[in-house]
């Protein structure tokens, strides 16, 4: 059950906040109660976070719940989809009991197909040039600033990366996107699809160095059963639990429970 995180005290060292006289920072509540507890209240406002995980671990669902919870609080939320069509995404979010169609109708929750933007910008090559990337960033900046977007999810940097040839171009894209979003005080989740092998957070290996935080989703095995787990690997600007939590996708949203260790190492 979602409990106060930190069943493992060693995984939860006090740092910064929590000491008397520490600076209070503005936080963006994810709206996922247990994740907010893991993050001591939420993601530092304006941070860019990598949501890394293999197929079927709940990355998109986490991103969608983050946006819907934000839209409910009056924060305009934008989903930039690279792979899934808007209609299919709407169908997916409709399974959430807390989702109201009204959020889409009144513009609190905006879903944009990135390929549609790319087509409008006239990108007709498989591989994006430096100029194309520049135009794409400008288009995103325009949407974010004109709509006053406070939360953004890009799903996924991996799919976008297939059209960007060089690692330094991805690095440059993310650096500039991060700057833009930070200036707009917009908190963002960048989805990264990875293979199940441990130790990697992105396909190219450049994204994790740029982002402010990494939330890793993966499957783990115990006694033959597969458990879907979440771990906050890094989060600049705030202390956080580094423990593993088992994650469940439910109609009322994502629920987390401490990953039980049973006094010994977990079998991966």
């Amino acid at each position: 059950m979602p409990s106060s995180p930190g069943t493992d005290p060693a995984a939860n060292p006090p740092a910064g906040e929590g000491y008397s006289g520490s600076v209070q920072i503005e936080r963006c509540s994810t709206g996922i109660e247990a994740l907010d507890a893991i993050l001591y209240g939420g993601i530092p406002r304006g941070n860019m976070i990598l949501i890394a995980g293999s197929v079927g671990t709940g990355k998109t669902t986490l991103g969608l719940e983050f946006l819907i919870r934000g839209a409910e609080r009056g924060e305009r939320s934008l989903f930039l989809s690279v792979t899934e069509a808007k209609d299919k995404l709407v169908q997916n979010v409709s399974s959430f009991e807390f989702f109201r169609r009204e959020l889409l109708d009144n513009g609190s929750l905006v879903m944009v197909d990135l390929p549609v933007i790319a087509a409008k910008l006239g990108f007709d090559r498989d591989e994006l040039s430096h100029e194309d990337i520049d135009l794409l960033l400008r288009a995103i900046r325009e949407i974010v600033t004109s709509l006053g977007v406070r939360r953004l999810v890009l799903d996924s940097i991996t799919s976008l990366g297939y059209r960007i040839a060089r690692d330094e171009q991805i690095r440059d894209f993310l650096l500039r996107l991060g700057e833009t979003l930070s200036e707009a005080n917009c908190t963002s989740l960048i989805v990264s699809e990875i293979s199940p092998e441990p130790g990697r957070y992105s396909t190219r290996g450049v994204e994790e160095a740029i982002v402010d935080g990494i939330i890793l989703l993966r499957n783990t095995q115990r006694l033959g059963d597969i458990l879907r787990v979440l771990q906050v690997v890094k989060m600049r600007g705030t202390p956080h639990s580094r423990a593993l939590y088992v994650l469940e996708l439910t109609p009322i949203g994502i629920l987390l429970a401490p990953h039980l260790k049973g006094g010994r190492a977990v079998t991966e």
């Binding site: 059950m1 033959g224 429970a257």
Partner: peptide, 20 residues
């Protein structure tokens, strides 16, 4: 729940029902 060994999932389903 798929297995009585998935103890965390049992916890989470209880939590879900308590909220529901």
């Amino acid at each position: 729940v798929e297995s009585p060994r998935a103890l965390e999932e049992i916890m989470l389903r209880i939590e879900y029902l308590l909220r529901r």
